[in-house]
């Protein structure tokens, strides 16, 4: 910055800037996840706090460690490591042993983010890579789900399968047997009274946080809506056991990590396209892969792998969608 002889600053335009900063965005998104976290604690008890805290500590420690080793400026205050930590925590079963959150957090922040150049240069969503690593490495621990129990004090000795797991292995009949009728099934899924990762179960809590982000214009609805719509249509067409167009899209929308993934993971700035039309394409791709994995692959849930695969395509999508430039010649070359 140059200063002139009167002590005034001389620098280039524009001279003013919006109030938005990277730390403000990261911390706001983190705060918007609190409803989901509270519901996780409500159903899965103190262990939910324990797992999430380990993820956050692991993420921030990894960021500090790798940046220190690399001789870079420490950027813990920007909140992005905290956000990755809380997202990773919300994507874990409450029953995992302590080392899984810690190691996954290192894979997420230390490797996926920092070793690729830090915030802005990671190809994949760090929290999802952390979770994918854990799922493949500790498959049993990562697919052992506590029975949700109300009122913050659950000990969760008993384990069970997730609704998607039941649907995949034993079918719709068994699912209705567990939850009563369809209406109470929907209701339980909506409020989150079901087995699953500790922050993914309560649709209401996730939607409250997401609505706040949309209101603040931190995320747009292009990716989440195209993602959800594709899953719904795919589930309706291919999800039924008795032929095409007999599937139940609502169960697919309300279960698994879809809401959390669509609103919080797929919309990760760094790893999604920036062009509007590209974002819709990205959402459709995520939805297609999710339903493909849910219905045809070995795992009951496919949101995580779907988003990670689409992450690879984000730069290609941006490159080929492009924006429509003002006054550009409309005729073909």
């Amino acid at each position: 910055m140059e200063q002139n002889k009167q002590g005034l600053i001389v620098s280039v335009s524009p001279h003013i800037s919006s109030e938005e900063t990277v730390p403000r965005i990261m911390w706001t998104v983190s705060i918007s996840l609190l409803p989901a976290l509270v519901m996780g604690i409500y159903y899965f008890g103190p262990k939910a706090v324990y797992v999430t805290a380990l993820c956050i500590i692991g993420s921030m420690a990894s960021e500090w460690f790798v940046q220190k080793l690399a001789g870079k400026e420490i950027t813990l205050a920007d909140g992005s490591a905290f956000l990755t930590g809380i997202l990773l925590g919300l994507n874990m079963p409450s029953t995992v042993p302590f080392y899984i959150p810690l190691v996954s957090a290192f894979v997420a922040v230390g490797i996926t983010k920092q070793l690729f150049g830090g915030l802005g240069y990671n190809i994949f969503n760090p929290a999802l890579i952390g979770r994918a690593f854990a799922l493949i490495t500790w498959t049993r621990a990562m697919t052992t789900w506590a029975v949700p129990d109300a009122a913050f004090v659950a000990i969760n000795a008993k384990t069970t399968a997730t609704p998607l797991g039941i649907l995949k292995e034993e079918g719709m009949g068994k699912l209705l047997e567990v939850f009563g009728d369809k209406l109470s099934l929907y209701k339980e899924l909506l409020i989150g009274h079901r087995a699953g990762s500790l922050g993914e179960t309560s649709m209401i809590a996730i939607l409250i946080g997401a609505a706040f982000l949309v209101y603040r214009r931190y995320i747009s609805l292009r990716i989440p809506l195209s993602f959800l719509a594709t899953v719904a249509v795919g589930a309706w067409i291919f999800g039924g056991k008795t032929g095409y167009f007999t599937g139940d899209p609502i169960i697919h929308l309300l279960s698994g990590g879809l809401m959390l993934g669509a609103f919080y993971m797929a919309t990760d700035y760094v790893t999604c396209p920036t062009v509007k039309s590209g974002q819709i394409l990205f959402g459709i791709g995520c939805g297609f892969l999710t339903i493909l994995i849910r219905l045809k692959a070995g795992y009951p849930e496919g949101v995580m792998f779907a988003i990670l695969i689409m992450n690879c395509f984000a730069p290609l999508i941006d490159r080929n969608c492009r924006t429509s430039v003002f006054g550009a010649k409309k005729e073909k070359k």
Binding site: S11, H15, L119, G120, R322, V325
Partner: peptide
């Protein structure tokens, strides 16, 4: 005023794409 002598990586948030009146990236 804003001091831009020190700035961060692009986080690809797309705000600039949305703001550009010429439809650029």
């Amino acid at each position: 005023i804003v001091h831009r002598t020190k700035f961060n990586h692009c986080i690809r948030c797309g705000r600039c794409v949305e703001a550009c009146p010429m439809g650029l990236m």
